[in-house]
Design a protein around this nucleic acid. Structure first.
Lengths: 111, 111
DNA sequence: ACGATTGTTAAGCATATACTTAAGTATTCT
DNA sequence: AGAATACTTAAGTATATGCTTAACAATCGT
């Protein structure tokens, strides 16, 4: 049987899982502008603060967000390396596909 | 409040959700090699056939896989456009981040 | 010290996910 | 026709997810 290492491992599980929710994607978009506190992040949403904290935990567990508590405020920032992990996985699929389509094209063009 | 259009919409929900499972990612990897039937796809896994069919339904709902039944066999193939949708979303985050880091760098280098 | 701010913890709930087994349907082969 | 193949459908189950409210810390400004 295939294990999940071949498909990219538990790290990608957590990353794509985190990306699968629109609230979490919106949080990531916001964090691309720069670090923010929990309540700053929560402000745009019609959702309780604990709900946002839970989303942040999912994002942190995925490695795409890092948080640090200073005094009473927790500062959240994005971790580009983890984001790139997901992008790279998709990129590898695409290049695999392109290779295959090139071979197909070459085959069809044979004299 | 932010709606999920700003975060990319329900289409991305389904795509990232589909990507969040290692079995489904392994199926996608296999489909990059070319189309396959349901039981061909199922063979590498220690899982019942209905379980694989359910994974395929998730993938199909995400738009990343297209299936067509011919006779008694259902042929599954990958849909590169949907895969690219996810990659592009991540790419936009990265370029946003890079722009920001460039601005930061420029600021730090000011005389 | 006191009150406001900022976040945390816990419990509960409704729905969704990832499977299973058992029984069915449609095709193809002989 | 009858048996084998390739799914399909249905029903059940265990765990995970996305929220909620209520009550509890910790820290900061005055």
């Amino acid at each position: 049987m295939l294990n999940n290492r071949e498909a990219g491992g538990a790290e990608l599980d957590a990353i794509f899982q985190a990306l699968a929710d629109p609230t979490r994607r919106a949080i990531l978009i916001r964090l691309c502008e720069g670090p923010a506190s929990v309540s700053e992040l929560a402000k745009p949403f019609a959702m309780s603060l604990p709900a946002i904290v839970q989303h942040l935990q999912v994002l942190e567990h995925s490695g795409m967000v890092r948080t640090e508590k200073i005094g009473r405020v927790r500062s959240c920032s994005i971790e580009p390396a983890a984001v790139r992990l997901a992008e790279d996985w998709l990129g590898r699929r695409r290049t695999g596909l392109e290779r295959r389509l090139d071979r197909l094209e070459a085959f069809l063009k044979k004299p």
